[in-house]
């Protein structure tokens, strides 16, 4: 099938790629644009490690057609840090030992970012709900939840000041 051009903003930069109309976003990000932040896990929308933000909305890149992202703004885990300065969630994941093998981490960080964007002060249950679409095969959910909780509490404390 003839390839079609796809243009979108990726982590703040205008990017373009030629994609098969049936290509999913994950394939275009990884193979077309060399953004290896989002991982290929199950390829069927179950594990969540390919999670990205499309116009601020949490999406599974493996189930999103790349062509449908024309003109969109896409954020991946690769764009979370500000140069050498880690995003507060990344910092908290480090401090809480929230990564073991690390394969789920890009999706967990992205899901957590989406959660805090729409709900800056989530309860523990809301955090669990926010990452319910992400599987951690090391079963290290507890430190991941603790890391997200610490950022939420820190942000809430910052608002009160």
């Amino acid at each position: 099938m003839a390839k079609v051009p796809v243009q979108f903003r990726l982590n703040g930069s205008d990017r373009a790629a030629f994609a098969d109309p049936a290509d999913n976003l994950l394939t275009v990000l990884r193979r077309g644009l060399n953004d290896f932040g989002p991982k290929y896990g199950c390829g069927q929308g179950t594990c969540g490690t390919c999670s990205v933000l499309v116009d601020g909305e949490l999406r599974l890149a493996c189930l999103t057609l790349a062509a449908s992202c024309e003109g969109a703004s896409i954020e991946t885990v690769s764009g979370m840090a500000d140069g050498p300065n880690l995003h507060p969630l990344q910092q908290a994941f480090m401090e809480h030992f929230a990564a073991q093998c690390g394969f789920c981490t890009p999706g967990m960080l992205t899901a957590a970012k989406a959660l805090l964007a729409r709900n800056p002060n989530p309860s523990r249950d809301e955090i669990i709900d926010g990452i319910a679409g992400n599987i951690c095969r090391c079963t290290g959910y507890e430190p991941i939840i603790a890391a997200i909780e610490s950022v939420a509490r820190g942000a809430a404390a910052g608002q009160r000041r």
Binding site: I127, I128, I131, A132, C136, Y141, I145
Partner: peptide, 17 residues
């Protein structure tokens, strides 16, 4: 046959330990 049918614990399944 896949992750939809293979049951694994998610973040909501954890209990105090």
């Amino acid at each position: 046959r896949d992750f939809n049918e293979y049951l694994m614990p998610g973040p909501g399944d954890i209990a105090p330990y």
